[in-house]
């Protein structure tokens, strides 16, 4: 009696028929698999660059690509979590640089044992992320404003604390630069930093897809009122997301020190925009509730493959900027299209 049987000629039948049109099918596919479009783009990018210069597909170039992607890819994990809740984090780079400088200064200049300095540095990321979380959930400020403010605050604190001075690699203990150590994997050369980032992706990806927390992150970003009425403690979920993101930035800082071989308060100046770019190209919606970190990883790889591929093809670096800009706009357009009324 309650069954909505679809009668021929009815609107329901028409919708049913329309759903099977090719465009609708693509829309549905992209909707259920948000990482599909960045995967296709990455594949096309790699094919194109290999055709331009076959050194692109050589293990040496790909190893470099992976190592160069690691830091933005790591920061973009935290950024993805926050964007999934319909927020944004502009303080990504400032937190990561702050963590790296704190660990480096403690170890190199205060004589703190290296492992302890590392733990304090990573913990500083957690604290900074938690501060963002508190301002968003307790004070109720929009994430954009909160992180715009803390971007300046954290940057200023780091510059005041360090006097704008870098810590050269020679002064750094091995524990801090260990993440830059390379090891061979087949024909590839990877760093331990890359392994750490890969582990972070596995852990966060697992938490997002397999735990109630992950589902709540999506639900809060999708419709926070609905999530609250469904019994989810929205503030708690939001706070945890900012805190976890901070912890991720702290760990990324460790990878950053290894990659740079030194700690500089002026490192990764473009980290904020690069991490957001990776997330957006990766198919995560800026409106929250849709996307995932697999797409983000692909997005980070796409951006970096443009850098590597274009330089191998002998093209000016400005074209990378141009291409990335066009990709961002295209990715958001696709997202809007996917979100448009279905069924």
């Amino acid at each position: 009696m309650l069954g909505l049987t679809i009668e021929p000629g009815s609107a329901a039948a028409e919708l049913e028929r329309r759903r099977h049109s090719p465009a609708q099918r693509v829309q549905h596919l992209l909707h259920t698999h948000p990482a599909l479009s960045p995967a296709i783009i990455l594949l096309l990018t790699c094919i194109a660059f290999t055709l331009l210069n076959d050194r692109f597909a050589a293990p040496a170039a790909l190893s470099l690509l992976i190592q160069q992607t690691a830091i933005v890819a790591a920061l973009a994990i935290g950024q993805t979590l926050i964007i999934l809740t319909a927020g944004i984090d502009l303080s990504v780079g400032a937190i990561a640089v702050g963590s790296s400088m704190l660990a480096a200064m403690l170890a190199a200049e205060q004589g703190v044992p290296a492992p302890l300095a590392l733990v304090v540095g990573v913990a500083a990321g957690l604290v900074a992320g938690s501060l963002n979380g508190l301002l968003v959930t307790r004070v109720g400020l929009p994430p954009f404003i909160v992180t715009l403010g803390t971007l300046s605050v954290f940057t200023a604190v780091v510059l005041i604390y360090t006097g704008g001075q870098s810590v050269p690699g020679a002064d750094l203990p091995d524990v801090l630069t260990w993440t830059g150590t390379t090891f061979p994997l087949g024909d590839f050369r990877l760093t331990y930093g890359v392994v750490i980032v890969a582990l972070m992706y596995l852990v966060v990806g697992w938490a997002l897809s397999q735990t109630a927390w992950g589902r709540h992150v999506y639900a809060v970003g999708d419709d926070s009122d609905a999530a609250r009425l469904a019994g989810i403690r929205v503030s708690r979920v939001l706070f945890s997301v900012y805190a976890v993101a901070g912890l991720i930035y702290g760990l990324a800082a460790w990878v950053l020190i290894g990659r740079a071989g030194a700690a500089s308060p002026n490192a990764i100046a473009d980290a904020n925009l690069e991490s957001i770019t990776a997330v957006v190209i990766g198919g995560t919606s800026l409106f929250g509730g849709r996307g995932g970190i697999l797409g983000t990883l692909l997005g980070a790889l796409i951006v970096q493959s443009f850098a590597v591929g274009l330089s191998l093809a002998g093209v000016d670096d400005q074209y990378r900027l141009l291409a990335v800009g066009i990709l961002v706009i295209a990715a958001v357009s696709v997202d809007q299209w996917i979100r448009r009324v279905r069924a």
């Binding site: 639900a219 999708d222 419709d223 609905a226």
Partner: peptide
């Protein structure tokens, strides 16, 4: 249990 007017469902899930 309550069914709210706004339905309180997460559309993407």
């Amino acid at each position: 249990e309550t069914v709210y007017q706004t339905l309180a469902v997460a559309p993407a899930l």
